[in-house]
Simulated assay, not measured.
Amino acid sequence: MTPLTILAALSGALAVAAGAFGAHSATGVAAEWLRTGAHYQMIHAVAALVALRMGARLPAGLFVAGGAVFGLSLYLMALGLPRWLGAVTPIGGVLLILGWLALAFHALRGRAE
């Protein structure tokens, strides 16, 4: 296992934990932040594992990093940290978009099936 595979797996685990906490212990906007962060982080943890299987390390890294920045900024706000962290969330979103673009480029170059 590569370190990136381990990080993707840990990212998935964190997404499950955040989603469960949001579903069972949070209310209002905090529950919504946890749900949104968990959703995006889980999708991109799986996408990272698929990208790694395809030999696409850059997209995988962008998916893991973007999912972490996106999700963690929302999780921290849900736990009561300052709302200015919401300004960090779009950085994670940009990393996720770049990951998808990098994966498309990887496929166009003929390295993916």
Results as ranks from 00 to 15, higher is better:
L108H: 12
V50N: 04
L103T: 05
G66D: 07
L95K: 11
T5F: 03
L14A: 06
G37H: 04
M42P: 09
V88W: 06
P59V: 05
F105S: 12
W84G: 11
L96V: 08
I6T: 03
H24R: 01
A87H: 12
L62E: 09
R57T: 13
Y40V: 05
A45S: 15
R109K: 15
V94R: 12
V46W: 08
A45M: 09
L103V: 01
H24L: 00
L34Y: 01
V64E: 01
P90V: 08
T89M: 11
L85E: 09
F105K: 12
M77E: 03
R83H: 15
V29I: 13
L10N: 10
L14W: 00
L49N: 12
A9N: 02
R111L: 07
P3N: 14
G71E: 07
T89A: 05
A51W: 01
R57A: 14
L34M: 10
I43W: 15
P82D: 14
A30S: 09
W33T: 00
R53I: 11
H106Q: 04
H44C: 10
V94A: 15
T2A: 07
L98W: 14
A30M: 02
L74P: 02
V64Q: 01
V29A: 14
L62G: 08
L98M: 13
G61L: 07
W100C: 05
A60W: 01
G110Y: 02
L108Q: 10
G19F: 00
L72E: 02
R111T: 09
L10R: 01
L101R: 09
A9D: 02
F63D: 07
L14F: 06
A112V: 05
T27H: 11
G22L: 00
L7H: 10
V94E: 10
G99S: 04
S25P: 01
A48I: 07
M1P: 03
G61E: 03
W33N: 11
E113I: 06
A87C: 10
L103A: 07
L108C: 05
A23G: 05
G80H: 01
E113F: 07
W100K: 04
A47Q: 09
T36W: 12
A38H: 02
G55C: 04
H44M: 08
L95A: 13
V46N: 05
V88T: 13
L101E: 12
P82E: 13
A65I: 04
R109H: 10
I43E: 11
V29F: 13
A20W: 04
A23Q: 03
L98F: 14
A78D: 14
